[in-house]
Design a protein around this nucleic acid. Structure first.
Length: 975
DNA sequence: TGCCCCACCGTTTTT
DNA sequence: CGGTGGGGCA
């Protein structure tokens, strides 16, 4: 049997940011009754503690609905006036904030998700838990594409309900002016058909939505988005269907106007974002006025925050007042507290208003009943002066509203309309000035305007002159010095493709060597992509790491059947071999590995202790049929030195040899290359000696530098056109690296990127914690806020096209990541870090049996995250915004005991690598003091910073108090 | 063998 | 501060 009931399907719990502490199930229950709402969302079901509370206090009721357990209900019912008693049900609901990049623009939207069962919610949560952080806030922020979120929901249970939330609000919504889409299809692609309802939000009513054809096939619902109990039901929806989750779902899908009756909305003008304007400039415009001012604020000359009305007009394809056929209805209300507030001329959240509110509901009934249904006579019974009259006027629409704008709620007047100009500049008192000033001390960013089609241009025009030369050079040993961002790998793959497609070289005769599996795979992919484009046969180019290449040779040409000892195994064997206490196994391990990288054997090792351990270690390896990683190369070299026939055979097979990151080779690898490449005809190596940062594992860029001596008839080509960074970043990084080698000015690379120059930002903070906070705030500002709260607090006025994946935080030691993790966790900023990945891997191991495998079947989505990584790990990567943190002596350059620096040139190169990861914005931070090994240490700014000339740097002090003082002082000067 | 306490020491990371 | 490992004791 269908029945009529009122729903509020979007609220939050006390676990969401900026919500009331009493937003628990008890208060939600009582508030729903008082308001006259029968079905209320639980909010925040992604939050583990909240789900625990739900399980503890609720039990299943009608299908997909939940009710308070009996004892609790009995207790609470006593506290609610009898006139308001009614059944209240809960529906499992959450809101998820997505911030991500799609079609080259940053998108931010909020979406509501509903499920009928707690077990399904838990399943959904466990998957989300792996994608992002659901534990720090009731409304999680995920870098997950809304389309993927929908896909995920459907894959967990297709009886779920997915509703884009408050679709018109400027900052965080599907149609938002700041970072939304123009159509549902643009946002949800082929999954759009699974969107059957949208939430209109506080600042829009149905007639506004009716003007947009794109919404015609959807049910339009309204909810309160309450952050405290008293706001529950301020917006709501009315159903006349089966009293169950599935009744609601079906009514929304079928758009049957006898089953879904429509919305109860506050007048949209009361919403925070109805008109356009600037709150802090006291400018409030209607869309026409905004147009007159070209969308620019006359006070501060920055773009105005465009409100909902403006955005609706942009997307509207129908005139104002258009009502499509077969549409459900709507009713407009002014909250009872606001009416009482006007009657008694006190704030809506005051004792007086509360007392009279209670009086009204005790005498008459729930709020929505009073506002919509009760007769004027009944209302008069409450004996509240003017109330009946006010409600009568309200029902007839005889009210005046000064519209909300830029985060400020609108204001309603029922009895008098003076001083309420609907148009024009507001004259309200300046509030929150201090807060806005605080924020304005943050660095202001202007995005470097790189030509958007930069990359495409390169592709269209093909390669630049030098790159072309590289591709066309034949039958000569070739060394390419390629600075950061100069298109190194692209040129390499182009050359290989050229050989195959143009020169008809047999792909099997090409060998491309790299150092990591990741690099090898990437190269393989890029080559095959390119070749397939040019319609060639299947790819059989050998792309390999040095180690996998050697393994292949050993397996193919020796009969020695062995396994490879991984790190743990090797460590174990070394430990067993370490009978002497004079040396720690870890140190012995390092020494032995390094010796092997230099093609040494234990036989002629000088140190007796090491020699002993090493010999024992070798016999242990042999006894277990094991070889270590370095043996792979060592043994191959030995094999080829002994067996000339085999060497000739391999030389015949691999005619064209390419080596990427040549600056990273060690002696064993060098000897191997010289063997295989013979006289070097058709050998090409590419790399950047300034990015040699793996000395500690045997790499030596001397091999790069001596290439022209090794192969006297070789050719050297330098790539110095950079397609990654701004000239400022390149200038600064060159000044750093050139301080080691001024003679080679040829090496200087030049940016191909034109546009605004952003200086290198240098930030000094009081402590490591302050450093993390400062970085977090800068990121929030560049993203344009991650939550409503930060929007209100940060006074962000311009949309910046950055999303989480655009940021990297680089540090010298992994320990530095911890404080960033802690702060970002609290701030609900999604991040990935070496520590986090490690725990993830450990958990994976732990869960390997029953559960994990099962879950792995689910779709895996990559959510956008900020990257926290060591500078070493960042090599080869690029990010629009890079923070190099801890730019302090003993970190950069690193020194173990605070005095001796192992290899200052390599430290410089390391910093060079860090700086050149940045595309648009480079920020170098340092703390005045920090905790190191449990002790607070005074810290000195890295001397490397002083090799960057002053006019490339912009200093930013994160000491806000000082800034505020300055501002106040300046203001006083004016008088 | 197992457990507890104290001393010690502290980069970067791939195969 | 926090993990590890050796030494001492049960």
């Amino acid at each position: 049997m269908p029945e009529k009931f009122i729903t509020d399907l979007h609220i939050h719990s006390k676990f969401s940011r900026a919500t009331a502490k009493n937003l628990d199930l008890e208060h939600i229950y009582m508030a729903a009754m008082i308001k006259g709402v029968s079905v209320v969302g639980t909010g925040d079901f992604t939050y583990p503690a909240w789900i625990a509370e739900i399980e503890e206090k609720l039990e299943p009721a009608e299908p997909g609905f939940f009710k308070l357990k009996h004892e609790l209900k009995k207790r609470l019912d006593k506290e609610v006036p009898k006139t308001c008693h009614n059944k209240v049900r809960f529906i499992l609901q959450t809101e998820i904030s997505s911030i991500y990049k799609k079609n080259d623009r940053v998108r931010k939207n909020h979406n509501l998700i509903f499920f009928p069962e707690i077990e399904i919610v838990k399943k959904f949560n466990s998957i989300l838990d792996k994608i992002g952080n659901i534990r720090s806030d009731g409304r999680p922020i995920l870098g997950l594409d809304a389309e993927n979120l929908l896909e995920l929901m459907l894959s967990v249970d297709d009886r779920g309900i997915f509703i884009p939330a408050h679709i018109w609000t400027p900052w965080f919504s599907m149609f938002g002016s700041k970072s939304g889409f123009d159509t549902i299809e643009e946002c949800f692609g082929s999954l759009s058909k699974h969107i059957f309802a949208v939430e209109t939000g506080l600042s829009s009513d149905l007639p506004m939505n009716f003007r947009v054809q794109n919404l015609d096939n959807l049910s339009l619902i309204s909810n309160s988005d309450a952050h405290s109990p008293r706001f529950i039901g301020r917006n709501a929806s009315i159903f006349n269907t089966d009293f169950s989750y599935f009744g609601i779902r079906e009514a929304l899908i079928k758009k049957d106007i006898t089953k879904y009756l429509g919305t109860i909305d506050m007048y949209p003008e009361l919403g925070k974002y109805h008109y356009d304007g600037h709150r802090n400039c006291n400018v409030c415009f209607n869309p026409v006025q905004t147009l007159e001012f070209d969308g620019i604020c006359p006070e501060c000359s920055k773009p105005l925050t465009l409100g909902v009305l403006n955005r609706v007009q942009k997307l509207a394809d129908r005139p104002e007042g258009f009502i499509p056929e077969n549409r459900h209805g709507y009713q407009s209300i002014v909250p009872l507290a606001d009416i009482l507030s006007e009657i008694f001329k006190v704030g809506p959240n005051t004792k007086k208003v509360n007392a009279n509110f209670n009086k009204a509901i005790e005498q008459i009934g729930p709020e929505l009943e009073i506002l919509l249904n009760k007769s004027i006579k009944e209302i008069e019974k409450a004996k509240i002066p003017l109330l009946a009259k006010a409600i009568e006027k309200m029902r007839q629409g005889e009210i005046t509203i000064s519209p909300g704008f830029d985060g400020e709620f609108g204001k309603v007047k029922i009895f008098k309309s003076e001083n309420l100009s609907l148009f024009g500049t507001k004259k309200t008192a300046k509030k929150k000035e201090k807060q806005s000033k605080t924020i304005s001390t943050m660095p202001t960013f202007t995005k470097a305007i790189s030509k958007p089609d930069q990359k495409q241009q390169v592709q269209e025009k093909g390669l630049n002159k030098e790159q072309k030369k590289i591709v066309l050079t034949e039958r000569l040993p070739l060394i390419v010095e390629a600075g950061p961002g100069t298109g190194k790998t692209r040129t390499l793959t182009e050359k290989i493709a050229h050989l195959i497609t143009e020169k008809k070289v047999e792909p099997g005769s090409i060998l491309a060597l790299t150092f990591t599996n990741k690099a090898a795979n990437e190269m393989k992919q890029r080559i095959s992509k390119m070749i397939l484009c040019k319609k060639s046969k299947t790819l059989s180019v050998s792309t390999a790491t040095f180690h996998s290449f050697c393994l292949m040779i050993l397996k193919e040409f020796t009969s020695f059947d062995f396994a490879i000892a991984d790190n743990d195994t090797r460590g174990g064997l070394i430990k067993n071999a370490c009978t002497s206490k004079k040396i720690k196994p870890a140190d012995a391990d390092l020494i032995i590995q390094k010796e092997k990288q230099n093609l040494q054997t234990f036989k002629n090792h000088g140190n007796k202790t090491i020699q002993n351990i090493w010999q024992k270690y070798e016999s242990l390896l042999l006894a277990n049929n094991l070889v270590d990683f370095e043996d792979l190369i060592l043994m191959t070299v030995k094999l080829l030195q002994k067996n000339n026939d085999l060497l000739l055979k391999l030389q015949k097979r691999f005619i064209h040899i390419f080596i990427d990151e040549y600056q990273d080779i060690n002696k064993a690898q060098y000897v191997l290359i010289k063997l295989i490449a013979g006289n070097g005809t058709n050998l090409m190596v590419i790399g950047d000696p300034d990015q040699s940062i793996y000395g500690f594992r045997g790499s030596d860029n001397k091999y790069f530098k001596q290439f022209t001596d090794d192969f006297p008839d070789s050719k050297k080509i330098i790539l110095n056109k950079n397609y990654r960074s701004t000239q400022t970043i390149l200038d600064a990084s060159f000044q750093l690296i050139a301080s080691q080698d001024v003679t080679n000015s040829k090496k200087k690379i030049f940016s191909d990127i034109t546009g605004q120059k952003e200086k290198i930002i240098i930030v000094e903070t009081a402590s490591e914690k302050a450093e993390a906070v400062a970085v977090g705030k800068m990121i929030e500002e560049l993203i344009g806020g991650t939550s409503f709260l930060s929007i209100d607090a940060l006074n962000v006025k311009t949309a910046k096209e950055y999303s989480f994946a655009d940021f990297a935080i680089l540090f010298r030691t992994k320990k530095q990541a911890l404080v960033f993790e802690e702060i970002f966790e609290k701030a609900n900023i999604p991040f990935q870090s070496p520590n986090k990945e490690k725990t993830k891997a450990q958990n994976k191991d732990k869960n390997q049996s029953e559960l994990w495998n099962h879950e792995q079947d689910f779709l895996e989505f990559e959510a956008e995250k900020i990257s926290l990584m060591s500078i070493h790990a960042s090599k080869g990567l690029e990010f629009p915004v890079v923070f190099v943190v801890g730019c302090e002596e003993t970190f950069i350059p690193f020194s173990k005991n605070g005095k001796t620096i192992d290899n200052i040139e390599e430290e410089k190169r390391l910093f060079y690598v860090a700086m050149t990861r940045a595309k648009d914005i480079l920020c170098l931070t340092h703390a005045k003091k920090r905790m190191i090994f449990g002790k607070t240490c005074a810290r000195e700014k890295s001397n490397f910073l002083s090799s960057i000339e002053e006019n490339l740097k912009q200093y930013q002090n994160s000491d806000f108090k000082k800034k505020i003082k300055n501002i106040i002082a300046k203001q006083l000067e004016l008088f």
